[in-house]
């Protein structure tokens, strides 16, 4: 607890605001069912009601409440990105530690793979795989994880390489500490800040990737993320000639922008505090 307080005190004003925004979105997502007065996937009013007291952000073309959709979208978008970020960072961390510890052929293979994967542009690959596999949440998660573990693996590998040369690790090794012992007792503790920063960085990347896919019509149609709400709104033919865009398009759009910015500023701050930039 003390540690958290210490970190909080070190945040800049932007970082504190960002943290607040992030927590608000998190609460919105976790308690979306309790906060929303209307179901997110059912017709509750006339079409295109402009924002008012009952429908905070108005309704869409079918008469579904947009605020409820934003709440539910927070749950899916944040849930998805947290999951992808955590899983891919853990995979990246394990790969990075193993490669750095054992070195040799494993390490060289990993470096090769990382080099190749980093220069392949991610959006075209996301597009082509998800259009062949079909748009479902499971597929989107798999593809995003496949593309996201690379940068944590790279960072954690080079940090572990540094750690390996530290005197206390060398001493521990001299006394017979093996890979598992070193990892559990020494590496992990030192790597925690990097792992956390990497997770936070991946969160905003995942939100953007998912929104881009949904925007192109490759989102999971049964799970309404913010990107999908935006995609539906932009797909509505008359949207350009009416006032509806002011609530239907802007709500998901600003939600994505706010969350992405909040996470980005937060990660810049945390990166400085943890001093993980290599």
């Amino acid at each position: 607890m003390d540690k958290i307080k210490k970190i909080y005190k070190k945040l800049t004003i932007m970082g504190k605001i960002s943290l607040l925004i992030f927590i608000i979105f998190l609460i919105m997502g976790v308690f979306s069912g309790k906060i929303a007065r209307f179901p997110h996937d059912n017709i509750v009013a006339a079409s295109f009601v402009s924002p008012n007291k009952t429908h905070l952000l108005g309704t869409d073309d079918l008469g579904m409440d947009i605020f409820a959709q934003i709440l539910y979208g927070a749950r899916v978008s944040i849930g998805l990105s947290l999951f992808v970020a955590i899983v891919s960072t853990l995979i990246g961390a394990s790969v990075g530690i193993v490669a750095a510890y054992y070195g040799g052929v494993i390490d060289r293979l990993l470096i090769r793979l990382i080099d190749v994967l980093t220069i392949i542009p991610s959006l075209p690959i996301l597009i082509i795989i998800s259009s062949f596999w079909g748009p479902s949440m499971k597929n989107i998660v798999i593809i995003l994880v496949l593309l996201s573990w690379i940068s944590p693996a790279r960072i954690i590998r080079s940090k572990t390489l540094q750690l390996k040369e530290e005197p206390y690790i060398l001493v521990a090794e001299y006394y017979g500490a093996g890979f598992l012992h070193l990892t559990r007792k020494h590496f992990i503790i030192e790597l925690v800040p990097i792992i956390l920063v990497s997770i936070i960085k991946l969160i905003s990347r995942t939100i953007v990737s998912e929104a881009s896919l949904s925007f192109l019509g490759l989102g999971d149609p049964t799970n309404k993320t913010w990107g999908l709400v935006l995609n539906f709104a932009l797909g509505f033919q008359a949207i350009y000639f009416t006032e509806y865009w002011k609530w239907w398009v802007l709500s998901p759009l600003l939600a994505i922008i706010l969350l992405v910015l909040a996470v980005a500023f937060l990660s810049v701050d945390l990166e400085k505090i943890a001093n993980t930039r290599l």
Binding site: L230, L234, L253, I256, I257, L261
Partner: peptide, 12 residues
């Protein structure tokens, strides 16, 4: 940080 296609939508 902001994905630019979202800014594009705003421009649009």
């Amino acid at each position: 940080e902001i994905p630019s296609f979202l800014i594009g939508v705003l421009f649009l």
